[in-house]
């Protein structure tokens, strides 16, 4: 009897550790991959505004419970000198459900804006992923300087 209890206990623990935790997400989760980035505008074609600069080295990793979620983005910088836009690309559905639908490129502001809608499923072990394409632009009239944005991505019920 004692042996049975031990075996059942070990099996239950194994389930939680190796199956349940990896297969289920009871709350939506999201993380940014790729770290912080710097976009440097340093060139122009004579007679035109400075060239815009893009970067696609970062992304999102996310998952939800069976309900439908969306991902929003906002910046902490209330009065930027220059323009920063983001576009979600290359959505890869992880495991089950849907990684959602990317929205059009947005200019980041301090208001939450949808970047992905219709997200369902995904697990901690096999999350949905996507690429973040940032584009920075500046005009000659705006001059030189630095904008430091803290971009917050949030996954919320749709």
């Amino acid at each position: 009897m004692k042996k049975r209890i031990i075996i059942i206990s070990i099996l239950l623990l194994g389930y939680f550790v190796f199956f349940a935790r990896d297969r289920l997400i009871f709350a939506a989760s999201l993380s940014v991959t790729g770290g912080d980035i710097v976009l440097t505008i340093s060139t122009a074609v004579a007679g035109g505004n400075p060239d815009s600069v893009s970067n696609e080295v970062s992304g999102l990793s996310y998952g939800t419970n069976p309900q439908t979620y969306k991902i929003t983005a906002r910046t902490s910088l209330a009065a930027p000198l220059f323009t920063l836009m983001v576009l979600v690309k290359n959505i890869q559905t992880g495991g089950s459900g849907s990684g959602g639908t990317a929205q059009s490129q947005i200019t980041l502001s301090t208001t939450d804006q949808d970047v992905v809608v219709g997200v369902t499923g995904g697990t901690l072990a096999n999350p949905h992923t996507c690429t973040l394409e940032y584009t920075a632009s500046a005009t000659a009239a705006q001059g030189t300087g630095n904008d430091v944005h803290t971009i917050t991505y949030t996954i919320v019920k749709q």
């Binding site: 993380s31 912080d36 998952g63 430091v148 949030t154």
Partner: peptide
């Protein structure tokens, strides 16, 4: 541990052109 949001710092540097 599975937070519903995350942050990333994006810096735009515009140098002399």
């Amino acid at each position: 541990m599975a937070a519903n949001n995350d942050n990333q710092q994006v810096t735009i540097m515009v140098v002399a052109v």
